[in-house]
Every structure is written in C-alpha cells, then in structure tokens.
Design a protein around this nucleic acid. Structure first.
Lengths: 218, 218
DNA sequence: ATTAATTATTAGGTAAACCTAATTTTAATC
DNA sequence: GATTAAAATTAGGTTTACCTAATAATTAAT
C-alpha cells in the first residue's frame, strides 16, 4: 500500500517518461511537483526500496512493472474524476484538474470501475488524454493538434493542449466543445492561420496559436 | 484553513455533542477516532489556539461558531458524497461510509454545492441523517424507527439505524429501499411484531428487531 | 583540459500527527 | 475522608514528507 505522496511521484515519473523526457531526473521531478530536489532524492530511495522504481544516476528513474500498475491506476482515477467533474458537475475544462488531483487518491477497491461505468466508459478526459481501462490499457492516442490537420478532412474536437482559461472562454464563446466537428478548408501559409468550418455551416479563420492549442481526432 | 485531521476532530466533536454526550472528553474523542487520548489532548490545544473550539477540563470540548461552521460543512460533504455513492454508483448503504470519510475532505470552493445540485438537493443521506444545506441549516429530523410508527398511517423509508450488511441484504430481497412506502396495518403486542404493507399490495409481518432498525418518516 | 555551472546527494532540521510511559488530577467507592 | 480507579496531561519519541545549506559529482564552456 502506498501513500498519497508516493502515488504522486509514480504518476509524475510516468508522465515525464510519456512526455518523452529522455532522463527522469530528481530536478525534473522536483520541478513538476514544485518541491525540492533533495526531497525527491529521499523519496526515490524509498520507492526503490519498495521496488516501485529503479533508479540509476545515469539513466534516471524508471517505473518497475509494479510501479507502472500503480501509476496507471492513479491516472485512470484522475481522468475519470475529471470527466465526472466536467460532465456531471458542469465544471469548465480548466477547473477540473486541481480537484481531480485530490480525488485521484480516494481509495476503495472498485470505486474507479463503478465510476467508469456510471460515466459510460469514456475514452478521453476533458483534456483529450486517454483514460486507461480497468486492466490498464489505454486506447492508442488518436490526438493531434489542429495545426497538424489535413486540408479537406473533418475531425472531432477531443480536448485542449494548455488549459488556459482565456482560451477555454474563447472556445465557449465560439460554441466549440468536446465532440464539435471541424473541417479544414484551407491553410494560409503566410501567417499559418487556418480557415475552418465549425459544425455544418459556420466558417471562420483561426490563428496558429489557436490551432496549436486545440486537440482533434479523425 | 484547517487540515484533514482537524476537520475530523471538529466533525467528531460535533457528532458527540449531537448524540447527547454531556461532556465531550479527550477519552470519548479518542474512542471515536480510534486513537490515543494523549494525541487528542495535543490536538485540542491546537484547535483552541485556532479558536475553533473552547476546551475546559470540567465542561469538555465545545465548538465555537467558527468551528461549528467547519464541522457542519464537513458533515454536509460527507452526506452528499454518501448519496452520490449510493444513488449514482450503486453502492449499498453500508459501503458508503468509509469512502465518504475520504471524500468529505476534498477541498474546492463550490464542489459541495455543485454536487448538491447534481443530486437534486437531497434532504437525507442513505442512513437517514439530514444533509445540511449550503448555509448550514439542517431540516428538523423527520425520522423515527418503524417500531414507533402509528397503526393506520403510511410512511416513507428514509434509512437504516445500523448498517448491518445482512439486514441490508434482507431489505434488498424484500425490495425495500429509500422512498419505499410502508403502511402500518397492525401491531401484534405479544411479540411486538408488526404487520405492514409494503408499497401498494404486498403485506408481511416484521419482527421487533426489524422494526427497530428501519428508519421512516411520515 | 581546466574552469565554471549545473545536478545530485548528504547532513541536519522542521512540522504534523501520531505514539508509549509516567505523572498528575479528578471521580468513585468503601 | 482515605483509598482506588479512571481520566487527563506531560514528557519524550517516531514517522512522513518536507526543508536549507553544504558538499560531491556531472556536464558544459572556454
């Protein structure tokens, strides 16, 4: 049985690794957790003892399979609660993270599974991140930035990259939410803006900044 | 801002007082929290410093108005989550307490209010305890044991006294749940059993033990 | 390759919330 | 009212998860 803090470390190590960080170092972890590298070193030792990670100065921290199981289940809980908060309690995309950060640590054998069922087995959280299934599998990520979309194709909005409140506010005003369909009409090369069609009949131009922040899926 | 542990102490002090304990002593609190009286004394000092309780050897611990506000809000969150777990996630009455014990400490300004709304502003939790409203008011407890019911009258089931799993199982088999209507047909004095009507057409006899465990409201 | 800068680690410390064991206080009983 | 039992308190310790400051080890830059 692991503590709340241990769960957070495992989750962060998993996430950093997933984000493609070549070496998961104490400093990187400290930055993510907003704490001190010295504290991280302490905890890494503890996690090594518990056989939840392997740590090697030169290779950084790596989850063992036991550690990975825990990390994924924490992530699963986090993302399920995010869906709950957004969908059932009408929170905005940017408000759900901090609360889910707390809720992910609630422990009870089948809570996540019941929640999953209650929510209708969602595949993605409100940020477009895939939700691991009960057995720890994640759907292969169908997820690209609007910027990477191909002209002529139609996509569905699945989330945002950075949950900047202003951006979310703006999306809301445009009536763009999860599931909204977007068709790419034209790429304007000179400023990298895009002419898109939202839903069936609305057309508009969006900036590169915009298209780098919206996540879509075919 | 108070810690999780402080919240638990305030809640317990509130509950002990409500249960009619004449003097809320360190030993009583320790018994309720399954910890040591010495630890309780430590914490009581801290709570006095924070002006959340008044403590006097001879009178025991008493919540200040600030302490009461916190205690009631913890209780509100606890009971709302219990409703959520029972109603939305299909937990049995006896399974919700331990999970709600954890969820009650999730902090976020308006989470409880949103949850309350989502649940349709329930008045009682699955144990028949009243849920404080957002401003801290609790409905006057409409709650009596089936044993105390009057012949001829019709009541609604609001909860159980002791959440004994066997009893809950039995209720389930009888298709008795929260909201089920029960009409008292006859009191059998020789063994204190009751002839009741469940819903519209089912009649059956229940033992005194049974009727001392089911909570109802007119 | 040596110096400078960055990282990692160790040493020693703190705060929260517990604990045990000893002591004092209060209450109960004869 | 003295004795005994129970409860409250104090003293001193532990664990978890942090911290700062100092040192050691890497990595980068001249």
């Amino acid at each position: 049985m692991q503590t709340l803090s241990e769960e957070n470390y495992l989750k962060i190590i998993y996430n950093l690794d997933k984000q493609g960080v070549k070496k998961v170092t104490p400093t990187a972890i400290a930055k993510a957790l907003l704490n001190n590298p010295a504290s991280v070193v302490d905890m890494l030792k503890k996690l090594v003892e518990k056989k939840l990670i392997a740590y090697d100065k030169t290779k950084g921290a790596k989850l063992t399979s036991a550690g990975k199981v825990i990390a994924i289940s924490v992530i699963r809980r986090h993302r399920l609660w995010e869906v709950f908060l957004a969908e059932k309690l009408a929170y905005e995309w940017d408000q759900v993270h901090d609360i889910a950060e707390q809720m992910e640590h609630i422990r009870s054998p089948d809570l996540a599974d019941r929640l999953d069922k209650f929510l209708g087995f969602p595949k993605y959280d409100p940020h477009g991140d895939p939700i691991p299934s009960a057995n720890g599998e994640m759907v292969s990520v169908c997820r690209l930035m609007l910027e990477e979309a191909a002209v002529g194709k139609t996509y569905k909005v699945i989330g945002v990259k950075d949950s900047n409140p202003e951006f979310l506010q703006y999306l809301k005003r445009l009536d763009i939410g999860i599931g909204t369909t977007i068709t790419i009409k034209e790429k304007i090369t000179f400023d990298n803006s895009l002419m898109i069609q939202i839903g069936k009949n609305r057309q508009m131009s969006v900036s590169r900044i915009f298209s780098q922040n919206l996540l879509i899926c075919e």
